[in-house]
Write a protein that binds this DNA or RNA. Sequence first.
DNA 1: TTTATTATTGATATTAAATATCAAAATCGT
DNA 2: ACGATTTTGATATTTAATATCAATAATAAA
Lengths: 152, 152
Amino acid sequence: MTPVAKRKMERRKTFNDYIAKKQLKSTKQRDTIFNEFFNNYMGKHVTVEELYEGIKQNHPSIGFATVYRTLKLFKESGIASERNFGDGKARYEPIRSETEHHHHMICTECGQIMEFANMQIESCLLQVAKLNEFDVLNHKLEIYGKCSNCSD
Amino acid sequence: MTPVAKRKMERRKTFNDYIAKKQLKSTKQRDTIFNEFFNNYMGKHVTVEELYEGIKQNHPSIGFATVYRTLKLFKESGIASERNFGDGKARYEPIRSETEHHHHMICTECGQIMEFANMQIESCLLQVAKLNEFDVLNHKLEIYGKCSNCSD
DNA sequence: TTTATTATTGATATTAAATATCAAAATCGT
DNA sequence: ACGATTTTGATATTTAATATCAATAATAAA
Ligand SMILES: [Mn+2]
Ligand SMILES: [Mn+2]
Ligand SMILES: [Zn+2]
Ligand SMILES: [Zn+2]
């Protein structure tokens, strides 16, 4: 089994476990949204509206509210992250592995989003928090500017 | 003259210059809001609503829209920063010096906001950007978690 | 100082994203 | 299959941000 396929199963299990733990129900809609999101938006940062429009193509009966609620569920269960890049719309992205962690550079010109990770920044940050006796739950680092295409 | 008083004059000049350059007008309301904001909210992160409520005490005729627009003007002229800490409300803070730059740790329990600066993080960040040929305009780093009071 | 021009103000309306409501439908343990 | 519980999709509500506009104020010109 490829690592991608393995991760796919893990994610499914995590979600199913969450559903079970919270005494929620498995539904066709949740399945559909799960598949659409994790098959078509890997490495993307999609808004609720965008995902809804995408799903509507093949599943016209699924409502916006259900997509909205299901993405929230993905977030709560730890298989997706919510992001906010300052345009007033929440974005969601699949979490690629249990341990991965990254930040973003957002081109203010063309909207392109680039990802990066940096161990040194992460450890500096934890050190700062420790120094201030601050118990870190999560953090975000965003760089805004122009990508190489747009800064010519 | 104390450094604080000096900075006060600089800020006033920066704002006046901006007003002049953009062919805007000096008004009593802008003066009032300027004084309230820079006298009472140094080191704070105030929402438009909060500042408006504060000003209303002594200046009941000043409207919300004017406070809103004036804070935007402060931002545009470079004497205030707009911040967004994930509660859906924009916050504004006076810029304390031409060169200062800092980030935030936000307690998700009590809402306390702590500031910090870290040169190492800043240089790592610029290095990452350079590597990706990304032209940095600005960036933000926020740490969410529990402050020492709240994590007992 | 009066007048003309242009910008500002404050009240109110609009927008847009997030979230709440609710009756009908679906799920699931028995 | 039944009954309890949750979900769904349509729609309504909320809220912060922003737009509109007639009355007013600030500045420039005469
Ligand atoms: Mn990402
Ligand atoms: Mn600050
Ligand atoms: Zn770009
Ligand atoms: Zn706290």
